[in-house]
Simulated scan of single mutants.
Amino acid sequence: MTSATVVTVNYRLGAADKGIPLTRGTESELESEKGPDSKCQTAKFYKYPTPVHDTLAGFDWIRNNFRPTKLGVFGSHIGGSLALMLALTEPRAVHAVAAHEPICDWPGLDEYCTHEKNADQGSSTKQKRSTRRKSAPADLVPLLEVREQLFASFERCFDAFASPVLFLRSAGRDIPKTFPQYLTGPEYPIPVLKNTGKMTSDQYDSPTSSLWDGDIYPGSDTDGDIDPPVRRRKALSRWPPYGLDYGLNNEVWTGPDHGIGRLQVTLPWVRVFLGNRRSAESQIISSSKGTATRPTILEQQGEEIVSVMRKACFWGREKGFGERIVTLSRVDDFPGQELANYFQDVFNKESSDDD
């Protein structure tokens, strides 16, 4: 046990009044009618980037009021993504970060869906059987539904403060103008992109088909006879990027010869906690049913953020340094005791290094 001050940041996300049911739509407020003669009661529904703003405001309040010498941050799921956001944006103030099954890449959910033709579009029996032998991760459809509720527009999913993996690599696709709509349910083991009538049958069969204007935007000016663009390859970015230290020494940029420097900073200690399953590279095969137990999206994204952090954040460091700073741990349940041990070990290690 260690003596520590614990502060909870109650960032706003979702309905302010939990008694009012969540409804879909473009309005930012939810309404509940109590009767024909009663006045309509409204409750604010908070979407991104509100939780990011609240987290940063709480972070500043903690620093200004407590002035901690050692600061650790923990969050679970969406809170985990906010904790990782602080690790990448406030590395000089944060000493250690832990995240439990964080959602790191909202735009990446579409990669688990398919554009294949459904039965109404005349696909062959062989194609339908091939499609139905596959299945999507169990948390895909719930995450797609939550994404549409929590973001006012699709482009906000591409904000790195909401999807922290985008601090370290490109999204690998253009930013669509609206949310793609998918066919889901028992008859669609993998969500199928709805055809708005703009895509031809040849384009649905194209191996390079991807989300594009003529596919998901009704009334778009895109010509449906043009081949859809090829999805771009995801590119790794170096962290921290150039230019973050501009003006820190009160220097004035004088021209191209002056150059733009890179902030000299090290990523805080980071640990990502995931469920106690095997990784995606070694899926569990059931001998009785002959089916693969697919890892969840949160598990795959947790593995990816650890891998990408190790590759992008430690340029010029000795081999194995990133693996020591950024670690992954698998637990059977909520990592309460493991979390306490992790922070204690990190802070004791830093204290011994200071001595």
Rank of each mutant, 00 (worst) to 15 (best):
Gln149Arg: 10
Ile103Gly: 00
Lys117Ser: 08
Val7Ser: 08
Ala136Val: 04
Asp213Gln: 13
Lys134Phe: 10
Thr327Ile: 09
Glu148Val: 08
Tyr48Thr: 03
Thr296Cys: 03
Gly259Gln: 10
Gly19Cys: 03
Glu31Phe: 09
Thr266His: 13
Pro51Ile: 02
Gly58Asn: 02
Phe158Ala: 06
Ser282Met: 10
Leu193Met: 13
Pro91Phe: 02
Ala312His: 00
Phe314Thr: 00
Gln344Cys: 07
Asp174Thr: 10
Lys289Phe: 13
Glu318Pro: 07
Leu13Asp: 02
Phe74Gln: 01
Arg277Leu: 10
Val265Asp: 02
Arg262Ile: 13
Glu187Asp: 15
Arg317Phe: 15
Val94Leu: 06
Ser210Asn: 08
Trp315Asn: 08
Thr222Val: 13
Thr131Asp: 12
Pro180Lys: 05
Gly80Glu: 06
Asp353Arg: 15
Lys198Met: 11
Val94Tyr: 01
Ala312Asp: 02
Thr178Tyr: 04
Leu84Asp: 01
Arg233Gln: 15
Val308Gln: 00
Thr2Asn: 13
Thr293Glu: 14
Pro240Asp: 03
Arg147Pro: 02
Leu86Trp: 01
Lys319His: 08
Thr200Cys: 10
Ile284Phe: 14
Asp105Gln: 03
Gln149Met: 12
Gly336Arg: 12
Lys234Met: 11
Val141Asn: 03
Leu183Trp: 11
Leu193Val: 12
Asn250Ile: 07
Glu187Pro: 00
Ser123Ile: 14
Gly224Glu: 05
Asp159His: 10
Leu140Asn: 00
Arg67Cys: 13
Val270Asn: 00
Ser28Asp: 15
Gly122Gln: 09
